[in-house]
Design a protein around this nucleic acid. Structure first.
Lengths: 233, 233
DNA sequence: GGTAACTGTTACTTCAGGTAACACTAAAGG
DNA sequence: CCTTTAGTGTTACCTGAAGTAACAGTTACC
């Protein structure tokens, strides 16, 4: 049939596709290096330089700064999830589970402060601020949390419509305290984690008590739910 | 005594100083207009145009984009506080007090969505992202809340060191849900306010119960504390 | 040995932020 | 009345980072 028209590709194509992906990843790593060196105001030229090439090469792999930014956001989410997911999915009592999740988060931003600052400040220094490329990642995180909370709420017979505001509240709270902490460092990570654990647990506990449910903070709960990630990367 | 050296100024100086302040305010209003027209990506040229002049005039009153940005941040805080302070200081039961404060906040950002977006995205589209000019304002808000919460905590004999993380948590939670709500509008303002009221009250209530304190959400509390604002504008 | 899919370069354009230089005006005060 | 002070305003430029054009290799499959 329609053979031979556009043959040959195939085997070759595949290899190149892999290669391109690897190259993009390489630039993302270069960007991380550049962030460490030049602070959170990332310039495309620096990224290219950190990768040992000049701008146009970089631009063959990323259509624009926003594109690189998105990739950095994804990488950031990946780094975060590597530590967060095991912590949040532990079969453990609620309070230690919260504590470990928070600690995972703060340890990640401690390790990559400039990346975090750059992503939190949606600011590229460049022109087209367009519409926030990190949004997608933040929404993914919030969505994961929404569904986790929603599962629990449904299991307990509560209004699961509240799950989304709860998720965004927690994300916002952690994000903002994160920025504040990085800039000030006015307390140790452990102390901060402890305070936030208390706040979050208080919120959950208070909420449940208002619905006449009591849960022991230090005993694993029976109906244990787990974060599902839909990563269609 | 040391008279006559640099006389004459004085009366004249004062008048000019007032004039300059008025002029700055005029540009801030122009910036608000420009925000409404061109969205949250504010260009200096547009601001100047909205004020009916060209850039250099604007630059005689603001050294810098950051300078204008700071002024916008202050104006924003002012607008916010106009509605927030009366709500938060009401002599009322805790829950309605929280509810009214939240409603004040969300009504403000509903009225000035682009201003809010611009301030929340610390992003200028321009070069010198420097260090966040809105930070000061956010910190002022957080500080006010810290001292309010601290007062209550001390009055109840609790660790007031937790006040600051609580304050940043609440600020962050409200800010992030604010951005999310503006972009999505997936629920009414009232519904969102109601959810957040519940979350915050749950947190407070849970926290207090853990210290064996119970407070009626619908009765004014005896030891009523109030926000002090140190506005040295 | 040709060609597809890259590697890389230097030298540009574009655009927003910011500045220089120049011309004018109102009013306080000798 | 005319100078000085502190403004009003303009057009034409500089700067620096984003992004592009045009051109010159290199590799490896078929």
């Amino acid at each position: 049939m329609g053979e031979g028209v556009k043959r040959d590709g195939d085997a070759r194509r595949e290899r190149w596709r892999e290669h391109r992906a690897a190259r993009r990843a390489e630039f993302v790593e270069a960007a991380l290096k550049a962030l460490d060196e030049h602070g959170p105001d990332l310039a495309m030229e620096h990224v290219a330089a950190a990768a040992g090439v000049t701008k146009p090469v970089l631009y063959r792999h990323f259509t624009d700064k926003a594109d690189l930014f998105v990739a950095l956001g994804q990488r950031g989410t990946e780094i975060l999830f590597e530590r967060l997911i095991p912590a949040i999915n532990r079969e453990e009592a609620p309070v230690p589970r919260i504590r470990k999740s928070l600690d995972a988060f703060f340890s990640v931003i401690e390790d990559h402060p400039n990346l975090y600052r750059m992503l939190a400040r949606k600011a590229f220094n460049g022109r087209p601020v367009d519409s926030d490329p990190v949004r997608e990642d933040k929404e993914m995180i919030a969505a994961a949390l929404t569904s986790l909370l929603g599962d629990y709420m449904r299991a307990l017979g509560l209004d699961s419509g509240a799950a989304e505001p709860w998720a965004y509240s927690i994300v916002g709270m952690v994000q903002t305290t994160g920025e504040w902490w990085l800039d000030r460092r006015s307390m140790t990570r452990d102390a901060l984690v402890e305070y936030l654990t208390t706040i979050i647990w208080s919120a959950i506990d208070g909420f449940l008590r208002q619905h006449d449910i009591q849960i022991d903070p230090d005993k694993p709960i029976e109906i244990n739910k787990v974060v599902q990630l839909r990563r269609a990367r």
